[in-house]
Design a protein around this nucleic acid. Structure first.
Lengths: 242, 242
DNA sequence: CTCTTGATGCGAACACTGTACGCATAGGGA
DNA sequence: TCCCTATGCGTACAGTGTTCGCATCAAGAG
């Protein structure tokens, strides 16, 4: 009788063994959420769906995550950890290259995870988790090593991040809209130009990306603005170059 | 019997007269949506709620607006019409002041309607309506009058808008988070600094806005980055000043 | 070995959301 | 007078985030 156990004893012990799922945890939830977002975008993120992907019920996630909002914050901080910020030991000469690399890395991250674009407007960039603060610290060191006073370094960082985020978020939104509509880039460009012509006829806006590779054009645009901003910052480092 | 009309003949003819509501229209819907968003924020925008504010049923709005998404696009374009872009007739000298005024105007608009921050990441800045294309046209004229070649003017505009939007969206998100949490600015700054200390101890990030007026500090930060970007752009106009 | 205790998963339920459908009505032209 | 189109709206459906209480397991105490 002691060998006779309750009637439905091991319903999900069986399931857990069957699929070999190592139980839930905040880390597992967050990384699976990142995968889901990368594959299907922000609209596809629902607690039920995410739970299903983890072989768990919808409400089980709430044992490890307070809100959907908190989950999103965690997820954003997670991908923010992918941004590479070079060390500050290169000396003042390497400053510009290091900052540019950092900017490109941030841009790549946003383009790799386009859904962050739809969150950055709601979350702000300050309240986020350890990864973001750590990266900010490293950037601060970068600018201070270049010769910026701490106060000005903070302003410079904010300006740089604002530019990169603003530019790339716009780009990511354009790309995701393009992907959703199923059109090719050429068609979309043609359509936009036609719409602009209709709205304000006679003005030759958007004459760029006619025949070239649109991807290169976007990159060139990004680099142009970045270079201008860095030019403007560099003048603050004193007139004496290297 | 022919005089005997159906039992509930004039239910909403009465209602319409009672409240004197001039029937639904896309314009009325859009401007009421703007008002609702300004008062209660993005989360409070639901078709049912908006319909109620207009004295109409929820689904009546769909006769004038295809989607909630389309409604949002219309609303964003509406407030974009508030941005002031100066005329381009000031000559090359007035260029910098005109562009700066335009940037400040864009920033004011976003801070006046903080909810646009949560949309800019999803909508992109290109596909939008007549107001946005018109403003873009005017900015293009501004830069061309300053001496930029058409191709470069396009890149410069993108950079400027990216900076302003990125900076201000972050600011607006911070402010709305602050408003939601009910804390005062000093408390929030203290809390953030404490959190940063805990995450990465020993690093003196966020030393700014200690005793000064936070609002002035944010404005100063915005102006700093804007000046740097304009500095960088101005060098492209040829070494000969004025 | 038994009992308890805390952590964890989960089904049901609730208050919402956006939106498709079909019906009722009003106003205007033939 | 009749019809037709435009417009409003009630109902309904699928799906959402989240709460609550119960079931179950792992581990430690006696």
């Amino acid at each position: 009788m002691s060998a006779e156990k309750p009637p439905i004893p091991s319903v999900w012990a069986r399931r857990r063994q069957r699929r070999d799922q190592p139980a839930l945890s905040q880390d597992r939830i967050v990384s699976e959420a990142v995968r889901l977002l990368d594959e299907e975008g922000m609209d596809a993120l629902s607690m039920r769906g995410l739970g299903a992907r983890l072989g768990a019920g919808a409400t089980s996630l709430y044992r490890h995550v307070a809100n959907k909002d908190e989950l999103i914050e965690l997820v954003v901080d997670e991908v923010y950890g992918e941004v590479r910020v070079p060390d500050a030991d290169g000396g003042p000469d390497a400053w510009r290259a290091a900052v540019a690399e950092c900017a490109h890395s941030l841009r790549s991250m946003i383009l790799r995870h386009p859904w962050v674009a739809s969150v950055l407007g709601q979350v702000g960039l300050i309240e986020l988790g350890p990864n973001l603060t750590r990266q900010s610290e490293r950037m601060l060191a970068l600018f201070q090593a270049a010769g910026f006073a701490p106060d000005e370094a903070d302003q410079a960082i904010s300006a740089l991040i604002a530019y990169v985020v603003g530019m790339t978020v716009n780009e990511a939104a354009y790309l995701s809209m393009l992907a959703r509509s199923g059109r090719t880039e050429q068609e979309m460009a043609e359509e936009l130009r036609a719409a602009a012509q209709q709205a304000a006829p006679g003005h030759p806006l958007l004459e760029a990306w006619r025949n070239d590779d649109p991807r290169q054009i976007r990159e060139r645009k990004f680099v142009y603005g970045l270079d201008r901003l860095l030019d403007g910052l560099q003048t603050r480092l004193g007139p004496a170059g290297t």
